[in-house]
């Protein structure tokens, strides 16, 4: 707790470089998104820094960051894997795809690899179920994914370490 408080008071390092063009309150959401992208996550330092820069309370920034599923506090993996788990994808075997991602990456739903390369979350419909099941990696969409495709898809984003294969 004490450490976190110290972090909150520290001058945020990115403040002077990124603050200028966003000044209207309306841009706060997209600004938080930008910061998260640039800094690969949102630390409490970032949150406090944004609040100072925009003249709002830290709790308001925190409230926004925790409301939206594409935002979040804490570090973010370099590659974000999302597997749709809504009914149309379920009917086409998304469970098997999710299980294969878990196996290949060695993390569970909601998990992040220790080296920060990949994270996995199961999500609700992403509007790609004309060819279910669908997954996304970062901003790329893959439709009609079979469990057998998973390793190929993921390896486009960098070396895969830590999964069951790696341990075997």
């Amino acid at each position: 707790m004490a450490n976190e408080d110290a972090g909150l008071r520290k001058q945020p390092s990115w403040y002077f470089t990124t603050a200028e063009p966003h000044k209207s309150r309306n841009d706060l959401l997209s600004f938080i998104k930008d910061v998260q992208r640039q800094r690969n996550g949102l630390s409490s330092e970032d949150i406090h820094g944004i609040a100072v820069a925009w003249g709002v309370t830290a709790s308001e920034v925190y409230g926004i960051a925790t409301f939206y599923s594409y935002l979040g506090t804490g570090p973010r993996a370099r590659n974000v894997v999302r597997v749709c788990k809504s009914t149309p994808c379920c009917l086409k075997g998304c469970d098997r795809v999710a299980a294969e991602v878990e196996r290949v990456l060695g993390i569970a739903d909601g998990g992040v690899q220790a080296d920060g390369s990949f994270s996995l979350s199961t999500v609700n419909c992403i509007g790609e179920c004309d060819r279910a099941p669908a997954i996304t990696v970062n901003e790329d969409v893959y439709q009609g994914v079979a469990a057998a495709d998973v390793r190929n898809i993921l390896s486009k984003y960098g070396a895969i370490q830590g999964g069951e294969d790696a341990r075997a």
């Binding site: 009914t87 419909c125 509007g127 790609e128 004309d130």
Partner: peptide
């Protein structure tokens, strides 16, 4: 925002 589960007509 097309968030209804199973809709993709707006995307189309």
């Amino acid at each position: 925002d097309e968030g209804e589960v199973g809709t993709f007509k707006d995307r189309y």
